[in-house]
Design a binder for these strands. Structure first.
Lengths: 111, 111
DNA sequence: GTCTTAATTCTATGTTTGTCGAAATAGCGT
DNA sequence: ACGCTATTTCGACAAACATAGAATTAAGAC
């Protein structure tokens, strides 16, 4: 029974590593059906075991999902979870503050 | 010369801890001038040294700012940085993907 | 069954983190 | 200067994390 805060923390921590951020980026930019681990490995040029470890961290946090296709495993991003996470930051963690209206709003007025 | 990815990772990692998330929440909900460390300590009921350690992590990441006021140190959230971080996730890390339009937009349509 | 490819799990090692009591520092009042 | 309060820094320790080579599992082709 992990609480909401713990879950958000786990996900943020999972994102909190340069290599995992790079992995996520590649996964996001890859095909919607998912990117094979092997392709990530050759693109990012890191040992397979290290990559696998990071992928497991991301998958455990729910940020990516896996699907087997023959001998290859395809990883794809879970945008819903990612979304819920950024929402959490503003709506659950940072709501109700004196400085509530941020300098610029979170997404809709970037120009 | 820390790159953009490394900086984002550092900030996400700083947020990736339940206690620090709780600290940030309190800081956000506190006065705009900043919340004294002592008040955070009594509210969160953790040892002062532990709190100080977490505050340093948040401050090093740039998520909170400190200002001295006599003997007390007031911590306040840096909404700009927080904002830049959630923006980074969608605009730099997750841009250009097949599933680019998220299920719901990051902030402006929550009802 | 054997071979090959894809990826994970095992094992080991060094590094970083989290915790917190004790000691040190910073500022203010007297 | 002295005492008092607020907060940090030090020191120690266990736990978790990151890395990566070696061994293993999984699936398909022959």
């Amino acid at each position: 029974m992990t609480g909401r805060v713990e879950q958000a923390a786990e996900r943020l921590k999972a994102l909190g590593h340069p290599v995992r951020l790079a992995i996520l980026r590649r996964v996001v930019q890859g095909p919607e059906a998912g990117t094979p681990a092997g392709e990530l490995q050759s693109r990012l040029d890191i040992p397979a075991s290290t990559l696998s470890h990071h992928l497991a961290t991301l998958a455990d946090a729910g940020l990516v999902q896996v699907a087997r296709e023959g001998t290859t495993l395809r990883y794809r991003a879970d945008f819903g979870v990612l979304h819920a996470l950024t929402d959490y930051i503003w709506q659950d963690c940072c709501a109700g503050g004196a400085a509530e209206p941020p300098p610029t709003s979170p997404c809709c007025d970037r120009d």
